[in-house]
Simulated scan of single mutants.
Amino acid sequence: MNILIIEDNHQKLQSIKETITEELSERSITPSISIASDLAQAKRYICTTLYDLVIFDMFLPENSSSTNERDCSSELIQEFSISKNYQTEAIALTQFVISEIEDIQLFNLSGITVVHYAEDLNWKLALKQKINRASQKVRCDFLIFCALSSERGAYQETNCTLGNKKNIYGMNCQEVEIDGSRGFIITPRGMGLVNMAIISSKAIELFQPKIVAMSGICAGVQGESNFLDIIVGKTCWEYQTGKWKDGNFEQEPYYAELSRSLQVDLEQSSEDLETINHLRNNLYNSALKSMKIRIAPLSSGSAVIADSEMMKKIGMQHRKMAGLEMEMYSLYESAAQSLSSPLVFGAKAVVDLGGVDKNDDYQEDGCIISARYITLMLKEQLKKLKNHS
């Protein structure tokens, strides 16, 4: 359990730490406690690290070289509200009488409980209640989204460890572990952009993951991709946005993109023969002999396309478009608009070329190789994140 204590009074700090240790020792939980003793340090910690519980003091020195305390509550609250900790359990312990605090409403609006710190020890009960709530919150290192149960089932053919399926706040989740990191594979109620936007936004806000990903299958674009190629969405957009005018549809796509650093990592791994061999291990579809990992533009829409002419029209939105699928743009936007700002990427295997000759010949292998790719890339990125933390 990761806890931040913002406090410059040594005696008060020791009392808070003793209370935390006393409460968590009963559950055999060893907390990781960070201490911020001035405003500058507190703001830095709040902005850079995700905590399970933040304990505020209102009066602090400006920085480590200052000895004069002042009321820093408005700056702390503002920083907290726009940081990755905006949903973290929080409590302010103050030696001032609550009724005399002028900006008490600012704390209430930010979800921060304000408690009077005094000798009657009622503050301990309030703090223990916060500790209990924080310890019960479900957080994870990563999330994987699959639009279909067959896409999620393909993770049985990967090196990850699958756990129990759970109904968490109405979401269809399955526990998964990759190289010691824990997460969930989540399947929405149905396919399409709307279902994915709802479930991914809800899950990202609830679980606060470091990285989110998507695997599955898609249609390829003739000339830009082939059967069982894996397409990683370098750029994603919804092809259905625009305006109908005088019987014609004027396109107005909005784009979401990979982070530049993540894109470089994925591009480098796409050229690795060992990675390719890992993906097609014990699979014997002839198309796998020439499969490639393509970091390329990919379009999303809620309709299944089985029309080559429609594929051409959609392809006009980006001359290098390599694939068409139904959910990835929503995931990219959900991650981008979340204050927790997780890394995000999606990878789908080509199982048809968007024409009338759709069939199931490539779907099973497509689900497997995309799941293996996501597992492998998550392992590398989670290791990188741990090294940088």
Rank of each mutant, 00 (worst) to 15 (best):
N2D: 15
I3M: 02
I5R: 01
D8G: 04
H10M: 00
Q14I: 01
I16W: 03
K17H: 02
S25L: 13
Y45G: 04
I46P: 10
Y51L: 03
D57E: 13
F59S: 09
L60R: 06
E62T: 14
S64Q: 11
D71F: 08
S73C: 09
L76W: 01
I77S: 01
S81C: 06
Q87Y: 12
T88H: 04
A92S: 12
L93F: 03
D103A: 10
D103E: 15
D103L: 09
F107W: 11
N108W: 09
G111W: 01
D120C: 03
L121H: 13
L125H: 13
S135C: 13
Q136V: 11
Q136H: 15
K137N: 11
V138F: 14
V138A: 11
L143S: 07
I144W: 07
F145S: 07
L148V: 09
S149W: 09
E151C: 07
E151P: 08
E151G: 09
R152V: 09
G153M: 07
G153L: 06
A154L: 06
Q156F: 11
N159A: 12
K165N: 14
K165I: 10
N167P: 06
Y169N: 13
G170P: 00
N172K: 08
I178R: 00
I185Y: 03
I186Q: 04
T187N: 12
P188E: 05
G190L: 10
L193D: 07
M196C: 14
M196H: 12
I199A: 14
E205I: 06
L206D: 05
A213V: 08
G216I: 00
I217M: 06
C218K: 00
A219H: 02
L228I: 09
L228F: 02
I230Y: 02
K234R: 07
C236R: 09
W237P: 00
Y239P: 05
Y239M: 03
T241I: 07
G242L: 01
K243C: 07
K243S: 08
K243L: 14
K243T: 11
W244L: 13
Q251V: 12
Q251S: 15
P253W: 02
E257L: 14
L258D: 10
S259Y: 10
S261G: 08
L262F: 05
Q268E: 15
E274I: 03
T275S: 07
H278T: 08
L279K: 03
L279S: 04
Y284L: 08
Y284Q: 10
N285S: 11
A287D: 14
A287W: 05
K289P: 01
M291P: 10
I293P: 02
P297R: 05
G301F: 00
S302N: 14
A303W: 02
V304D: 06
V304F: 11
M311E: 02
K313I: 13
G315R: 05
Q317V: 08
A322H: 02
L324R: 00
E325V: 03
E327W: 00
M328L: 11
Y329W: 12
Y332L: 01
Q337D: 12
L339F: 15
V344P: 04
V351K: 06
L353V: 03
G354S: 09
Y362H: 08
G366N: 05
G366M: 03
I368F: 09
I368R: 15
I368E: 10
I374S: 07
I374L: 09
I374D: 06
I374V: 15
L378C: 12
Q381S: 10
K384C: 07
K386A: 12
H388L: 11
